[in-house]
Amino acid sequence: MTDKHINPELWLKEHGDYLYRYALSRLHEAELAADIVQETLLAAWRGHERFNGDSTLRTWLVGIMKHKIIDHIRKEIRQRKISVSLESDPTSMHFSENGSWQHSPSAWRDNPEALCDNQEFRQVLQKCLSHLPEKQRRVFEMRELAGDDSESICNAYDITPTHLHVLMHRARLALQICLQKHWLGGKGKL
């Protein structure tokens, strides 16, 4: 990094909005996202000697931010004692004793892009997401909406990959049922 580039105020100017969007898509709270941007830039400034130029500055900043976000989630989970129990299996009710379907999934042939542009569908999707248990929803959103890899999510929520797969499966099944019922079956009625 040349001297003129070692300027955190310049980093804020050039990468602040990008970092903010990155944090916001994972934490969903404007103020919190801004705080994480601040922490990230401060940590980057204090550790700028460790930036070796192998990656772009933005990639380096995002790398620092990922850790800040994971730390934040871990702290929150500890403080609020968000349950991580997997004891009762909510998917059981959709299968009979012998493991065959009680619910009849229908194949969706809608065009995904057209659906995304449909505001009514987006509202139904939001509603269906909001019905998921908190932990499940947050893990699901971090994976599907933020697009994070399994490792970061397991790290943040302190769960094993197996546990993550179970949460994702439960979330997908619940969403499939909710969307089928309220959109594909009842066209927008929720």
Binding site: P105, W108, P112, Q176
Partner: peptide, 9 residues
Amino acid sequence: SYHQSLTTM
């Protein structure tokens, strides 16, 4: 069908 709907999702 379930697989198909998850692919769409």
